[in-house]
Design a protein around this nucleic acid. Sequence first.
DNA 1: GCCATGCTTCGATATGGATCGAAGTATGAA
DNA 2: TTCATACTTCGATCCATATCGAAGCATGGC
Lengths: 226, 226
Amino acid sequence: MKDGPDIARIANLIGDPARANMLTALMSGKALTATELANEAGVTQQTASSHLRKLGEGQLICARKQGRHRYFALADERIARSLEALMDLAQNTGHIRTRTGPKDARLREARVCYNHLAGQMATRLYDHMIGRDYLKLSVGGLALTEAGESFARSLGIDVGELSGKRGLLCRECLDWSERRSHLAGSLGRAILTQIIDRGWAERDTNSRAILFSARGRAQFERWIAA
Amino acid sequence: MKDGPDIARIANLIGDPARANMLTALMSGKALTATELANEAGVTQQTASSHLRKLGEGQLICARKQGRHRYFALADERIARSLEALMDLAQNTGHIRTRTGPKDARLREARVCYNHLAGQMATRLYDHMIGRDYLKLSVGGLALTEAGESFARSLGIDVGELSGKRGLLCRECLDWSERRSHLAGSLGRAILTQIIDRGWAERDTNSRAILFSARGRAQFERWIAA
DNA sequence: GCCATGCTTCGATATGGATCGAAGTATGAA
DNA sequence: TTCATACTTCGATCCATATCGAAGCATGGC
């Protein structure tokens, strides 16, 4: 009586704590080596290797060999979005988080979601872009308006160039901490790149947090307000 | 190094085949008894009972006792949307479906997603509503415009009444078969109700398929074209 | 009261799979 | 060549849990 795709297979893949930790670590967007992932998951290399094989067979991650390392990354942006959606579910059906450390607060404000910005600042940016009609919902997805294009240009992003590349330009992604949408797609990625390149913020080395400097935050606000 | 919510716990819940089948069955939106769910999952009542307890503890389903039956339903519309998202993932990372029987085709065309319409006809309706500016993406969600309100009224839906109720009026939901959005929320529910009540279509007794009559399909088209 | 039905709890089983130690295969460095 | 590092494969262990039989509670019909 199974209607539709085999949901159990994929959920089971994500359902193991070690694998879930690996996937969560890969949400940072960085490609990680097998050993790094083993550490993230808190298991030995042997078991990590086994898990990675399964994740690969399940098409959730893809591997690239480089020298004597094997780098792993999420297979697809879609995977990242599904994981964020799952986090939303877990967040709100799970036990109340006992301690929300300072690290959590930072994650809530700004973090990496695969390759784009997530968290409070990301949803504010998204709302702003919707409010000013920079983004419009069109048939089958999100579209960037002319005004939005020049908004992006004001950050030094050439939208024309982006559109040429593979993958959608704009896409929604559910934000687990805000339970709202934020911007994904190649534009989302380009924005995060700019934010880092311009030195407004930097990525925390051992979490998904994006750390804005006071100055960077001000510049972000000015960009938005313009 | 676990950033964010405990994703493994929830994925593990969904990851068991028996439980996944139960959840899939509940996607029909109907509340089902423990015995019915046991049959859907292909397990005995005892094991079903155990699974149902776990799903309940995990806040994925909720139970209502009625006489000597216990009816189970998905706890939340959010659960349904997450399940559809998972189906999308499973659909496209999974092995290619070997046989896509006639039943699959029917599901692809029109089916129930918890309480609203999904499938080809649903995404067409959604695209249409976006294209005519009946729906607009606003801050933090989907909004119905004035024109959209009268569009709904033309099907006999009183939007004012709906808005009073709990839960969002309009919401997007990812369609696994179409990989596009369709309309969820109380308006989505009301539309499906009208489609059934007007006799345009009826629900298949033992699947999630929505079976349109030739006449019903024509009326649906006429409504959209109007 | 009695029995049937729907469902849960308990106990026993067994099986899948996560885990790691040890050994094996690549790749790079010296 | 020799050694070290990165990773995989193999084999054994061990634990969680899915499963069902049997018994235990409710509820409703008679």
